[in-house]
Design a protein around this nucleic acid. Structure first.
Lengths: 111, 111
DNA sequence: TTACCATATGGCCATATTACCATATTCTAC
DNA sequence: GTAGAATATGGTAATATGGCCATATGGTAA
C-alpha cells in the first residue's frame, strides 16, 4: 500500500510560500497592500517594528513571489504580485470559523 | 496617514494556520489525506520520518483545526477537518507558476 | 562635493522549530 | 494478568527565525 507522492521539491516549494505567509506582521502588510501599493516607510509605521525588520519581511515575501516592487526616487513601493490571495485567506478564515464553532459546542457540553 | 488594521490577535490566529501549512512533510500528509483518511502508521511510512516526528506534525495540524481524528482500536485515523484546502493550494500554485514564468522571461533577457 | 533621507544588509542574540531517541500511554490478544 | 502493537509525549541537540543595532548603499538636494 504505497501512497502516491510527488518529488520532495514539490512540497518544499509550496511550503516555502506558506511559510512566507505565516507571520502576523507579514499578513498585516499584505492586507495593507491589497488596498494599494505602499513604500517601506509607510509599512514600517504600520507594523511598528524596526525599519530593518520590515525590510526583511518584505524581502521574504518578494523572494517567494508574493510581492513585487517599483522604485520611485529613493523610495521603494511594494505591491502584491498575484490577485488570488483571497482564496488563501478564505480558506484560513474557514479553518478559524469551524474551530470557533467547535470550541463553542465543546464549552457548551461542559455546562 | 494611518492605515486601518485589525487587532494583532487577528493576524496571529491567521499566521498560526499558515504556519501549520508551511512544512513539506505536512503538505505531503495533507495531500494523502485529501484522498481518504489514514492512520498514523500509514502516514509515517509515507513521510519516511520517525513515528514520533509524524505524530507531532499531525498534532500541529490538528491543534489549529486543519485535521480531526477518529480512533479505531489502537489506531488513530486522521482526516481533513475542512474542504476548502483547494482554494489555498490554488493560490500557492499561482504564486509558483507566476514566479516560474517571470524567471523564464528573465533568463531569456540575458541571452 | 556634503548632508540627508529611504532602503537593504550583516552581526548578534533570544527564541522557535524540527529531528531523533527514549519512554509513557492505550489498546489488542492471549 | 502479560506481551506486543500503535500512538503520544518529554528530553535534547542542531538549525532556523525574528528582532534590533550598526552600517552599507542608493537617491535627492543644496
Amino acid at each position: 500500500m504505497v501512497i502516491e507522492t510527488k518529488p520532495i521539491r514539490y512540497y518544499e516549494a509550496r511550503a516555502e510560500v506558506a511559510k512566507a505567509l505565516s507571520h502576523p506582521s507579514r499578513l498585516m502588510i499584505l492586507e495593507a497592500l491589497s488596498e494599494r501599493e505602499r513604500c517601506v516607510c509607510e509599512l514600517t509605521e504600520l507594523v511598528g517594528a524596526d525599519q530593518s525588520t520590515v525590510s526583511k519581511h518584505l524581502a521574504i515575501m518578494r523572494n517567494v513571489g508574493l510581492l513585487e516592487t517599483r522604485k520611485e526616487g529613493a523610495q521603494v513601493y511594494y505591491r502584491p504580485r498575484i490577485k488570488c490571495l483571497n482564496g488563501f485567506f478564505q480558506c484560513v478564515e474557514m479553518v478559524l470559523r469551524e474551530r470557533w464553532e467547535a470550541d463553542k459546542v465543546w464549552v457548551g457540553d461542559r455546562e
